[in-house]
């Protein structure tokens, strides 16, 4: 897909993608029993890590989530909690 040549060199090697998931110290975990699928978390996620799927409603994709915690802070139902990465010691 990226083998074509551009006028400028920028872009001819592909997409600049940083692994921002490694920044995370806490991960948001969604409790689907409390979640009412209002979608507020999706609107506010700066990284677009809250996604929608037609059968399962909203879910969090951890591929690029930076763990900022906005979704957990803004959820009106308190359905998202921030849990420490790596589990309990």
């Amino acid at each position: 897909m990226y083998d074509r040549h551009f006028v400028t060199p920028v872009g001819n090697r592909g997409m600049y993608v940083l692994d921002t998931s490694s920044w995370r110290t806490h991960r948001p975990v969604m409790d689907k029993a409390t979640c009412v699928n209002c979608g507020i978390c999706m609107g506010y996620c700066p990284v677009n890590s809250v996604r929608w799927s037609e059968g399962g409603g909203y879910y969090i994709s951890y591929d690029y989530c930076k763990g900022c915690g906005i979704c957990a802070a803004e959820c009106p139902r308190g359905a998202i909690s921030m849990e420490r990465e790596g589990g309990e010691e």
Partner: peptide, 29 residues
């Protein structure tokens, strides 16, 4: 607005080095 966001693909690279909780990144996307 949620239907608009659900049906609009992201035009920016998924991983950019804006800080955690960046308001600018949210606006850009």
């Amino acid at each position: 607005y949620l239907d608009i966001l659900k049906n609009s693909p992201d035009m920016v690279s998924p991983g950019i080095s804006a800080c955690q909780g960046c308001g600018g990144e949210l606006v850009l996307r």
